[in-house]
């Protein structure tokens, strides 16, 4: 750090190193979070099944008076297992690991609808014709649409429909590449610091440590604020299952990112301590 030239170059390289370390932490967080399995476990941790069931109960109960179909026709077939499978299917569909045609058919739901319509037709002496078959088919399709939309707790359908997924998919698919690039770039910048400080190599340890510490602190401070203030709970999203899934996802992402940031901050602090020890030892010699 004794010459102005090496100080300025080291300072500039350290700025880039701060961003590369931050990018590395962010990419590692994204790699941990952005996957169907991760989303499925977030849904489970945030009680998505029970919240979705409650919302469906509320919907079908509310529609009973206008449709004439008792809510139990639908809700008795919507078991916890079925809802859980639907939620998981929608998540896997969102990530493109299953196709749209692999629908989770619910035989009990279809039987309930068939039985209700049949009993009702018999009670009013209605002769079952093509129109009757069409009505039954529509009732089943609409039931599947309602259940499927409620189980789409991460709103993949809205994102896909409006072309948003098309834009972010190329980035999501390349996360492992970005992890490699940010790690490689960080290593390159550290080597560059050693080259700039050839005459006093221990300074490179100081610069690396400082960059790592600053990166860790810059990332962890906002994360701590977001966690402490429970920021995501202020989101106003109508459906409770979507609210809890989305806030759960955000909180998990923040916790992960905070963990990586604290690790880099501690790593930076350790390097600075090592630099101080080496400097003290050299001075005493």
């Amino acid at each position: 750090m004794k010459k102005a030239g090496s100080y300025i170059f080291s300072f500039i390289v350290s700025i880039f190193l701060v961003f590369m370390i931050t990018a590395f932490s962010a990419c590692l967080t994204a790699r941990n979070i952005v996957s169907a399995d991760s989303f499925i476990s977030i849904a489970e941790e945030n009680n998505a099944v029970q919240l979705t069931k409650k919302e469906l109960d509320k919907y079908f109960s509310g529609k009973a008076s206008s449709s004439g179909i008792p809510a139990e026709v639908y809700t008795s077939a919507l078991t916890d297992e079925y809802i859980k499978n639907m939620i998981n299917w929608r998540i896997m569909w969102g990530f493109g690991t299953v196709s749209d045609s692999e629908y989770y058919i619910n035989p009990e739901l279809e039987d309930n609808i068939d039985r209700f319509y049949s009993d009702y037709a018999e009670s009013i002496n209605y002769e079952k014709d093509d129109n009757y078959d069409r009505k039954v088919e529509n009732a089943k399709n609409n039931a599947y649409i309602v259940v499927s939309n409620n189980c789409d707790i991460f709103k993949f359908s809205a994102l896909i429909e409006h072309g948003v997924m098309k834009k972010i998919e190329p980035i999501l698919n390349r996360i492992p590449v970005f992890v490699g690039i940010s790690c490689g770039a960080s290593a390159f910048l550290i080597v560059l610091l050693f080259l700039i400080n050839m005459k006093e190599k221990k300074s490179a340890i100081y610069w690396t440590g400082t960059a790592s510490l600053i990166s860790g602190l810059l990332c962890s401070v906002p994360c701590i604020y977001l966690e402490a203030s429970d920021y995501f709970s202020t989101f106003t999203i109508k459906q409770p299952q979507i609210y809890s899934a989305y806030t759960g996802l955000m909180n998990t992402a923040v916790s992960n990112f905070l963990m990586f940031s604290l690790i880099t901050a501690v790593f930076g602090a350790v390097l600075i301590i090592i630099y101080s020890i080496i400097s003290a030892v050299k001075k005493s010699q």
Binding site: Y59, V146, N149, N150, A158, H162, I237
Partner: peptide, 14 residues
């Protein structure tokens, strides 16, 4: 913007 687009409506089937 993307968050608003994703959450601006509730059930589209309703």
């Amino acid at each position: 913007v993307y968050t608003n687009i994703a959450f601006m409506d509730s059930l589209r089937s309703d």
